[in-house]
Structures are given as C-alpha cells and as structure tokens.
Design a protein around this nucleic acid. Structure first.
Lengths: 144, 144
DNA sequence: ACCAATTAAATTGCGTGCAATTTAATTGTA
DNA sequence: TACAATTAAATTGCACGCAATTTAATTGGT
C-alpha cells in the first residue's frame, strides 16, 4: 500500500472498537446470570446511583438517545426491573424509577465488577492510564 | 450507595464503550462522503492491505463473525465495492476481493484518518499510551 | 392570550453484533 | 471406502445504536 496511514494497525478507533466488543463479551456470561444485556446493566448502574431520573438525563449520562432508550426501557419495564412514569409537572418528561426487584438486583450485581476485573490482567498502572485517557476524550467530546 | 464498585465512573468498560461510540460518531460525516458505515470502512481497510481474503480470515482480523459479515459483505457487493466468490479449492470458503471501484475508493479514503486526527486533540503521549494499552488488551484476548 | 419556536419522547427504518442453528463441503479415521 | 467429526458460511432471531421524523407539551415573545 502506498501510505501506511490507512493500515488497520495504525488506526486508533479500531482497537477501541475491537477492545470494547471483547470487553462486553467478557461481561456477557456474568450478566447472563442476571438476565441483562450490557446496556441494560449500564442503565441499572445509573439508577442504583440516582433512582428516578428522566429519560433525557439518563441519555446524557450514557450518551444514548431516546431512539435507543425508549424500547430498551420498555423491555426492562416488562421484566419488572423499573417503572416509567410521565412527570406531572411536565408531561413531556418520562421518569424512570427502580422497582423493588430492580433495587434488589444490586446485591447480585456487586459480584460482577469483581469477577470481571479478576479476568482482566491489565496491571494497575495501565488501568489508571486507560481510564485517565478515556475520561479526557469524553470530556473533550462533551465540551464540543 | 453502599459500595462504590458499582459507580458508573468507576467502571472501565463504560468509558471504553462511550468513547468508541463518540469516536465513530466523529467518523460518520467523513465516511458519509464515501457512503460507508464505520464497519464497512474497516472491511475496506483490510482489503486495501490484503485484497482477496476469506470471510473467516477477515472475521479474525476484525473480530467479527459470519453472522455480521455475510449480510454486510452482501450490501457492499450490491454497491459494487467488492466481489464474493466461492473458492474452487474449498467450496466452503468464500473469498472477498475488491472491484475497481473498491480499489479507487482508497484514494478518497486517505483523507479520512488525517481529518479525523485533526479534530481529536489527544496529545502524542496519550495517543501512544492508549494504543499500547488497547493492543495489550487485544493480545490477551486473542491468547485466551 | 396568541402562536411560533423549542423541547422530550416516541416512532420509523436501517445497519450492525452476536448467539444459536442450519447447510454444505472437507477431513480424519476405522 | 464409508462415515462421523470438523469446518466455513449462511441463516434466524433479537437487542442495540442512531439519524430522521413525528407527536405532544411547554415556553417565550408580541
């Protein structure tokens, strides 16, 4: 090839893309026990921190829009994990809140990050660097 | 919350997941000019390096299986970018090769990584670190 | 108070990803 | 040489992601 700039191994986005999918693949067996997909697990992570949150705020937190969230939240509601309610103050807003079942899932979920980290042999230093760089990237994106 | 281990900001996989999607979002306007999706662009990157490759080998390179690749390659074939041919030596194998149009797209594509890097203000050091850590992660995954 | 502009979700449509299964070809072994 | 085991793609089915549009509610300016 004329110039190496188009070589797969010289791209930054490809390893990011590939690593993300391989990571979520490692989560899958852990999440299967809770009958959750990875994005659904992320929704629960947010709700365990902040129960009762609007779809919009949830979307801002996870960088997802209503086109993704609405059907996903409906599936989670059908499973009895959460409740979707129109806000009384502003009828445009839908608020999401955990059910008892959704709250109880947190206990089980505590095992997941631990088990996950056990099989990820990144040393402490790389782990910290990776988080720092990704956080920087996401900051820049939020600003722009 | 009882323990911080479930906090979204303490997860490593979430920023990876979010950053990947934000990065591909930045590619989109660039790829729109070539009428390509990001995964399709990845397929072309491989083919520009190695024209004529089996679906299996392509999948190993991109960490994708036939369930994803077959319909995607068919769409790309319909667009006239590549040709899918059953191997004569082994009829199970389908080989993918660029058409003239697919080859010519490389010239246009050269602009893409440059334009992309211009809007990604990661400093050199972070960029190198990120690539190194992601490569390490992917190596570990391939081994296991 | 009117009404255009804005905003939040929902909807539509399409392209991935991927597990699981199926189909067809090849290989290894008795 | 049969034929079970393996292998490569294709197929099926479901859950995202996201652009674009629509619907319904609210806000802001006159």
């Amino acid at each position: 090839m004329a110039n190496d700039i188009l070589k797969l191994d010289n791209q930054i986005c490809f390893p990011l893309y590939a690593a993300t999918r391989e990571m979520t693949k490692r989560y899958r067996p852990l999440l299967d026990e809770l009958n959750l997909t990875y994005p659904q697990y992320l929704v629960l992570l947010v709700l365990w921190e902040t129960d009762r949150i609007s779809v919009k705020a949830l979307g801002e937190r996870l960088f997802l829009d209503s086109g993704t969230l609405t059907p996903m939240l409906k599936r989670m509601e059908a499973r009895g994990l959460l409740k979707r309610t129109r806000s009384k103050q502003d009828e445009r807003v839908v608020e999401v809140a955990l059910t008892e079942q959704g709250k109880q899932a947190e206990t089980k979920a505590t095992q997941i990050p631990l088990k996950f980290l056990q099989q990820t042999q990144l040393d402490e230093e790389d782990f910290i660097q990776l988080k720092r760089i990704l956080a920087k990237m996401l900051d820049q994106i939020e600003e722009s």
